[in-house]
Design a binder for these strands. Structure first.
Lengths: 294, 294
DNA sequence: CCCCTGTTTTTTATACATAAGAAACATATG
DNA sequence: CATATGTTTCTTATGTATAAAAAACAGGGG
């Protein structure tokens, strides 16, 4: 049976919406809420029913009035808002990166399902989707092999990444002056400078900025295969560094400076210096990753 | 319940093995057969039991003797040797390329399952795996969207392909003289010439040669992401041309000649001419595909 | 006639069941 | 003792069931 995580997430979000309203005020229509919450009206109605039952709102004929501010304690815990498939993802990542799983290990669907206390179907589905990251491989009728988060993996990853990023950076520089991207890159630069100024306190914000920066560059000439590869990179960085925080501040500071250099190069539109800045950044990122894999 | 396609395939293969033996001769051990057939001993035993039941072999204590040559008519039909997942793949491809499914069409798991008379689980699994080809996209809690086998798709595909092939060709040319690949490219050249000489009769053999050729070049510097992308290319060509045979002979003849030019360029080790030959071939392949998409 | 809510139908996410197939274990035989 | 066959156990492929979520349908009021 499926879990009601969509409902719980919507419920939590609805709390935030109601908190912007004062008691006595009327709630937006079901349809408006549906759009705001990004769920179906069915779920909206379920949430409203829940709010009613808790006395947070009162349902009058054809309208709903806020009766009292919901308490933060009425929120569902974060854990319960994650679909099983998402929990499985986390479990698997932990299993992979934390545990001492060596390359070549055979992965057993049934065993994993037991370990994660999840259904076999969902574990299987996860592995199928996860395959695209190049870390596991299927052997028909006989489970999977874990290929290992190895130096080789990092090298292959960065070989592709370099091709893709250089391509995008070049195309970026070729855009006409009146393109809106120049404004975006300007504010991107500002964001980097801001973060750099306050690096000691905010170094953890870099990861998100990094992703945004690279996506901005890639977005100038959309290519679904490149976009899909960005997911691989995001996954690697997200999970790998989540369990490997050594030197995070220093690492990020270096990367920010490299980004700024690349931004300058892009603005100069000089292909040679773009190539240089881009390659420099990727080489340093690669070395960092390799270093942390050991 | 799972189908016994593995058994049936192994049974058919076993017929071929027995046909190489004369009546009265002894069969290899279960283990040897297991290795030859590429299945588990469990399946081997099931096949042997089937052969026994049909009077094709006689099981004596600890050995099995061929009693009579199996007839080709005892083979299981090809259809029954395909796993459901493979049948679903074919059905889906047909649905996609044959039918008049326009870009943006919503794909409904339940509906497809009904249409293909397959379980929902397996359709879902297929779609998950198929996602990597960039032709469909998932919307959480609400099925999939078909993005269309469009000109854009072909262009994006070829943009990546060009990057990858150029990279591999260059690395190829940089290999030392004593590398075994030079021998392989030599026989590859011979195979091309042979096919070209008999093009009228054998033009359909090109598709397989094409795949082998590109894989040989890519194999010099293995990269799992490039390999995985080759699957995309293979899929596109396999299915697309299967339903679009216009000008096949002429198309293939041109491609063979382009391959030969690339082989010459590789042998010359001149980067400039390699780049030229490679780009020429890819451009022409792209135009052909674009043309056939209409 | 448009938008809103109440109701019904369809689809998706997930668990579970089961035959086919793989793997592990046990025993026999040269 | 090694290798082959017989037996048992575990895993995978695939169908089915079901609550949650989405979508479609149906009045009703401004």
């Amino acid at each position: 049976m499926r879990t009601d995580t969509t409902f719980k997430r919507a419920f939590n979000d609805m709390i935030d919406i109601i908190r912007t309203l004062d008691p006595g005020m009327e709630l937006p229509s079901e349809n408006a809420l549906r759009a705001q919450l990004g769920v179906s009206r069915t779920t909206v109605r379920k949430v409203l029913a829940g709010m009613s039952a808790r006395g947070i709102i009162v349902s009058e004929a054809h309208r709903r009035i806020v009766r009292e501010q919901p308490l933060q304690t009425e929120r569902y815990p974060q854990q319960e808002t994650l679909a099983i498939s998402e929990q499985v993802e986390t479990s698997f990542m932990e299993w992979m990166l934390r545990g001492d799983v060596c390359p070549g290990t055979e992965i057993n669907e049934a065993e994993l399902a037991r370990q994660f206390s999840a259904g076999t179907t969902i574990v299987r589905e996860f592995l199928n989707r996860f395959q695209k990251y190049g870390l596991i491989e299927k052997r028909p009728n006989a489970g999977w092999v874990f290929k290992g988060f190895t130096a080789n993996f990092a090298l292959e990853l960065f070989e592709i990444r370099e091709m893709f990023e250089m391509r995008s950076a070049r195309l970026f520089a070729a855009l006409p002056d009146n393109s809106p991207v120049w404004k975006q890159i300007q504010s991107m630069q500002a964001a980097h400078l801001e973060l750099l100024a306050d690096i000691d306190a905010r170094f953890q914000d870099f990861s998100e900025l990094d992703s945004r920066f690279h996506r901005l560059i890639a977005a100038v000439a959309p290519n679904r295969f490149i976009e899909s590869f960005q997911d691989v990179i995001t996954m690697v960085f997200h999970y790998h560094y989540q369990w490997n925080k050594r030197d995070e501040r220093a690492r990020n500071e270096v990367a920010i400076k490299e980004h700024l250099a690349l931004i300058d190069a892009l603005k100069s539109r000089n292909i040679a210096s773009i190539d240089r800045a881009c390659r420099l950044h990727l080489t340093s990122a690669r070395e960092t990753l390799l270093h942390s894999i050991t």
